[in-house]
Design a protein around this nucleic acid. Structure first.
Lengths: 220, 220
DNA sequence: GATTGTATTTCTGTATACAATTATAGAGCC
DNA sequence: GGCTCTATAATTGTATACAGAAATACAATC
């Protein structure tokens, strides 16, 4: 039984269908369509995305709290750039949260969530065997998402999901080594094993290793 | 020379004056004026705050990304409650970030920021001597703010500032022990000393102790 | 040529209007 | 009484209108 599907479309509560305006703007900022410091004129965005100013402004406000845009009173919205240092830092911040997420998740996970985690891990094994990199990137995110949910802390979940989004677009034009798939699978296996053993310490350590290596792979 | 003032008004870029609409809504949700699960009808909020739907909706969108409000498509905004567990968790999340903030701040702090940190600490000593609790609460937040800035990471700064806001309103009706002021001062002294010594490890440890004790004081 | 002051245009902030969706109330029916 | 269906009202989502601030262009002045 397929309980949920792995899709790349980041589903947001507000998304009526397809990609929400907010997600589009996030994408276009993170992929560099809009350059750091660039002024985002509402009128232009209206034309660009085919909607009126109201939804544009609401999205801009959300981007502001996300930290992707700076809003100056009576002057407008400006793209905030994420430097190489910012991205490196982000891995450290993400690491702290991911470790906490694993800790709480191992303590608080429900049976239903444990089933989903297992299922997801089996998908990972399957796609690693098949050598399907694209699918793996998506399921990788899914595996972490299950852990976020199992942490049963909305704030943690929100923040980590956002980090995923930020890093997703960066990872798109990365090079992946030959044994990337098997390496990552084993890293996740260690995390998954900690869930089976209900071993908080082992889980935290496995996650720390996993994020450290991910940072090396991407920033190294 | 007074470089900046300690005020309780959380200055937001959008605030034209006084308290911004967003800050008001945050306050009213966090102080329990609006109950968890309660529907926030835009029309009512318009009357309540004396503005039209446009600014109300923009604030609601920001509250949504803040995690204080849930927005359901075509159905409206609902207050999200923060349980006792959520608040306890928040201290753990905050701790992880505060520790990282101290680490980076000790490495990256500028002379100007170091001066401000010293000045702020001296204010703390002064108000502790005077036994002025209200001023201390404000300056306490200010001390941490300087550290956030010195971390030179916008995202960290944003998140920790938000945690401060969340906890601020909770702390308002708390009881403070007789030796609260001196205890807190010494905790901050240990942190400040780590900055002088440029000792990252000591700083991280001092901050961890500080947050742990703050959690005990508030959640204990 | 550079600079200052002013008029014009552009853009943001806010209010309002309209369409689409959802919630509500009541009649009819079992 | 409880249920379903329908008409009405209320509410959200989006577009537009208008006032005020900021940016721009340009002429006058030095």
């Amino acid at each position: 039984m397929v309980r949920y599907q792995f899709t790349d479309e980041t589903e947001v509560s507000n998304a009526p269908m397809s990609m929400s305006l907010l997600a589009k703007l996030q994408r276009d900022i993170l992929t560099g369509k809009y350059r750091p410091g660039q002024k985002l004129t509402e009128q232009n965005l209206c034309k660009e995305y085919g909607v009126s100013r109201t939804p544009i402004r609401e999205a801009l406000r959300q981007l502001e709290t996300d930290g992707l845009v700076e809003n100056i009173l009576n002057r407008g919205s400006f793209v905030i750039g994420l430097s190489r240092q910012d991205f490196e830092d982000m891995f450290e911040l993400r690491k702290a949260y991911e470790i906490q997420a694993v800790r709480w998740a191992i303590e608080r996970i429900t049976e239903e969530e444990m089933d989903r985690l297992e299922e997801t891990f089996e998908f990972m094994e399957f796609y690693t065997m098949r050598g399907d990199l694209d699918k793996m990137l998506v399921i990788n995110a899914g595996f972490h998402q299950v852990i976020y949910e199992a942490s049963h802390n909305r704030m943690l979940q929100k923040t980590l999901t956002q980090y995923q989004t930020f890093l997703k677009y960066r990872s798109m034009d990365e090079e992946y080594g030959a044994n990337y798939l098997t390496t990552v699978l084993e890293e996740h296996r260690a995390i998954f094993k900690a869930f089976i053993d209900k071993d908080v310490k082992a889980g935290a350590e496995a996650m720390e290793r996993h994020i450290n290596r991910a940072k090396e792979r991407r920033c190294g």
